[in-house]
Design a protein around this nucleic acid. Structure first.
Length: 593
DNA sequence: CCCACTCGGATGATGTTG
DNA sequence: CAACATCATCCGAGTGGG
């Protein structure tokens, strides 16, 4: 039993920096890994309150109203103060997770940490948790001298290769995965990597023979792994904490667990017992979030390994996203008709003006803003005054802008940004889905939405499981990419509870719903108002939820945003933690059913 | 090291509506 | 003319790959 009332510091996951000056959202949840000195840690004053200020009673009541026990709130505020609401919320959720899991560990349904309960030591779960065992072993072992570290790495590598081979993967691929992810990557990350590489190999098999692990490449692999080792050694000598090695590696190619059309391979994964649905859940975010974000997402979602998928494998535009979900992955089916996978398949009429030196086959990520008319005019002028074909310098300039702004060729020397209609088409929405709102708002909403085919690929497994339809709790719905995906899969939605702050987005969803659906849609503007009690009552009223789906507003996470880009430390984090809170509320309400 | 890529925003100018 | 919507321009860093 985890005692969250304890004042001891034994949970080293949560040492918090204090900002002290009461400025909101400046207490980093993740930056603690970057070694906050003891002087920056919260010290409690004689009253026992961190930060030297007692919280207003209304504050405590507010959190109690959200469903946290009062002592828990008091303890959390004592620990980190109440100036940073987000950090406080994260801490409360962590307490609750620990507490809940410890509580339910006694009953037969689940246990958060399998090792802690006796009968969980069967081979079912140990495979999944092996990565953690290794981590323990690493801590116990010495990492002082670099020679010792090198030896440890060698044996570690053998161990992991053996484990992967035992699981049925070819030795070469195990090797490759370790090269890619590092020796210290947990086993499940390596498995993920092997799967991804196999999927990629089969995806590209059409044009090439399958001899991709031949001798020529092996030499290069050895080089790579030497380099990696050197890098690792250099770092462990203490210039920087080895954060990179610990953090979640992005698979390359970013093909997810599997792709449509590669039916030979059966992928399987083990989920922690506690994560197994129903309810099924599906959380999405940008893949290129700041360092440590995905570790944190995963940590708060049952340590499930994210599935990273670039939608350029599903349609003609790239979109690198990560998904944490507990859906089965073996019996997926692709949406029909399949989306066009290249620019020319999607827009054959652009072929006419497409110059041979523009070799793009896919568009880049569709963003919320488009190129200005001035820019395309500059390009046109540059091309008009150049030879044909233009000199390399002009080609380079034009290509750079084309990639940056996703321009397409619509006339002689003439490039243009994509229309909102084309955004809709590429993203898998029905035509005119966002028609009727402002043009810039269409771009904004579409740029922030799901790629429907990619999401539908993942959600397709629900169709056989719920032939009569589903109840959905949809957080940060946007223009309803998840709902459109379910609809296009032919999955009936009895009820959708949708939380979306944007008024125009709600209007878009409502408009689409009323035209296409017969079920009930309940729209909620403010996630704060969806309290745990309200979740409970919805669960009672609708008999539980089959799917909790949430795309995360990316404002503070996208690479292009220089304004407070703070990982899990900004307003954004509050939204993620609302996702976690609400999912947890659904789960416990459904356990009581 | 260089360079590509990224679910962006604050600002002031210009255009549109009532 | 005021209020509002849209546009243009500058801005800019973190991460990862070659």
């Amino acid at each position: 039993m985890v005692d969250w009332r304890s004042d001891s510091d034994d949970d080293d996951n949560f040492e918090w920096e204090s900002d002290g000056d009461g400025e909101p959202s400046s207490t980093p949840a993740l930056r603690n890994l970057d070694a906050a000195g003891p002087s920056t840690l919260v010290r409690q004053d004689s009253n026992g309150w961190g930060n030297g200020e007692a919280p207003p009673p209304s504050l405590i009541e507010g959190y109690v109203g959200m469903g946290f026990p009062e002592e828990m709130v008091v303890k959390a505020i004592k620990d980190i103060g109440h100036s940073d609401a987000n950090a406080l919320l994260e801490l409360l959720l962590t307490y609750k997770t620990l507490g809940d899991d410890a509580a339910v560990g006694n009953c037969s349904t689940s246990g958060f940490i399998p090792q802690s309960t006796e009968e969980d030591d069967d081979d079912l779960d140990s495979e999944y948790w092996e990565g953690d065992d290794d981590a323990d072993g690493r801590e116990a072992g010495s990492d002082g001298s670099s020679d010792e570290g090198f030896l440890r790495e060698l044996s570690e590598m053998d161990k992991k290769i053996n484990a992967l081979v035992d699981m049925g993967y070819p030795e070469d691929e195990a090797n490759l995965a370790i090269t890619r992810c590092g020796v210290d990557a947990p086993l499940y990350v390596l498995v993920d990597s092997v799967c991804a590489s196999q999927a990629a190999g089969e995806y590209e098999v059409t044009g090439r023979c399958f001899d991709s692990f031949g001798g020529r490449k092996k030499a290069r692999l050895m080089e790579d792994s030497k380099k990696k080792r050197k890098r690792y050694g250099g770092r462990s000598q203490g210039s920087r904490p080895p954060l990179d090695e610990e953090s979640m590696p992005l698979p390359n190619p970013m093909v997810g667990f599997n792709l449509p059309g590669d039916m030979l391979r059966t992928v399987s994964r083990k989920l922690p017992r506690q994560a197994i649905g129903p309810p099924y859940f599906y959380f999405e975010n940008v893949a290129l979030a700041p360092r440590g974000s995905w570790d944190a997402f995963s940590r708060h979602l049952y340590d499930i390994v994210p599935e990273f998928l670039d939608s350029k494998y599903m349609c003609a535009a790239a979109r690198k996203r990560g998904y944490i979900h507990n859906l089965p992955i073996e019996t997926r089916v692709n949406l029909l008709p399949p989306a066009p996978k290249t620019i020319f398949e999607a827009f054959p009429h652009y072929k006419k003006w497409w110059p041979s030196w523009d070799n793009r086959k896919h568009l880049n990520c569709l963003q919320t803003c488009i190129a200005s008319a001035k820019l395309t005019e500059r390009i046109q002028r540059a091309l008009a005054s150049a030879s044909n074909p233009p000199p390399p310098s002009v080609q380079k300039y034009v290509m750079k802008e084309c990639r940056k702004w996703n321009l397409v060729w619509v006339g002689k020397n003439k490039v243009a940004a994509l229309d909102p209609d084309e955004f809709e088409y590429l993203l898998g929405f029905p035509r005119d889905h966002t028609r009727g709102i402002g043009k810039t708002e269409r771009y904004k909403s579409l740029g922030n939405s799901f790629q429907v085919d990619s999401v539908a690929w993942h959600l397709s497994v629900l169709k056989a499981m719920y032939p009569n339809g589903v109840n959905v709790l949809s957080l940060f719905t946007g223009i309803g990419g998840g709902e459109v995906a379910l609809h296009r899969l032919g999955i009936h939605m009895h009820t959708v509870i949708s939380v979306e702050i944007g008024e125009v987005n709600r209007r878009v969803l409502r408009g689409w719903w009323d035209q296409t659906q017969t079920g009930t849609l309940i729209e909620i503007a403010d996630v704060q108002s969806l309290t745990n009690e309200r979740v409970d009552s919805y669960v009672d009223r609708f008999g539980g939820f089959d799917l909790v789906i949430g795309g995360s507003p990316c404002n503070n996470l996208a690479g292009s945003n220089r304004h407070h880009r703070d990982g899990l430390d900004g307003e954004h984090s509050a939204l993620f933690f609302h996702y976690v809170r609400i999912l947890s509320a659904v789960k416990s309400a459904m356990r009581r059913m």
